[in-house]
Amino acid sequence: MTAAGKRQKREDYRKTHKEEGNAELPKKKFYRQRAHANPFSDHRLTYPASPALMDWSSHYPAFVAPDTQSVAKDHAVVKPLTKPVTVADIGCGFGGLLVALSPLLPDELILGLEIRTQVTEYVEDRISALRSQYADRSPRLYQNISCLRANTMKFLPNFFTRGQLSHIFLCFPDPHFKARKHKARIVSGTLCAEYAYVLRPGGCVYTITDVEELGEWMRSRFEAFGNSGVGGEDEGGETGEGRTEGMFETIELPEEGKEGEWVDEGGQKGLVAMLVRCIREETEEGKKVTRNGGKRFVSVFRRREDPAWPDEI
């Protein structure tokens, strides 16, 4: 089929999908897009100039604060929500994790961020279909998840304020095998600073990949961050002087298949185990790894409190 014909077919499909009250789940084949995006290019992104100017009301209509006047800020009208977004799935892909997290974290607002337009659109259609499917049975379900297109490597602080997030998921990121491309990886010594900024102390970063080398890379970056430095071993990082504790601590995790026992224990440990099981089994890529009989490398890092200023020590 010609490219033009294919595009026409996609447009027709999406149009009819929207018209039919979109209760039916969208089909992935009409939303395929090349798996890699260049994080350094400008794209044509829309993002708020600052988190205060972000209007979340269209994303979480069930959580718009009632009885409050819209707050006008610098020509933009922002309807405040009853609670802030606290969970971010960076690179959410086709949204498998979002959908799985919705019932698991019913009291949190969960946002998927994806750089590819087509895929973002799929997730938006998927969520709206799920919302209308469950509108009668359980009207709160899937109201707490949403998705938007963003380049988080550049614009994460435009969406979230300092310490706003409790959980960040980095699931099956682009491995960027070539050393020349390592700067494009979603985890780098310098980007850890931004994750630490948006994450509250005690909040966690969950990483999973099927590439062993990338898993080690991510672990070494988070463990070295604020300890042996920004850069990690081979980025020419700042060497630590008298600092032994990094900004992130690596959390002990249950083995694959044994998460249930931990979940039963409850508490913080149980929550982490539940979410780890979720990224192992519920993400689209996680399912693919299971199908192919591959391996999964999971690490979870908890953010520590900011260290004291040098003058306070």
Partner: peptide, 24 residues
């Protein structure tokens, strides 16, 4: 990309204290 980042000075330059956001 319109950001002004406020970081701590050396040797804690990895800690972001805030941003000045408003440029377009």
């Amino acid at each position: 990309d319109e950001h002004i980042r406020i970081s701590r000075g050396v040797p804690q330059a990895h800690i972001i204290e805030g941003y000045c956001l408003g440029h377009t």
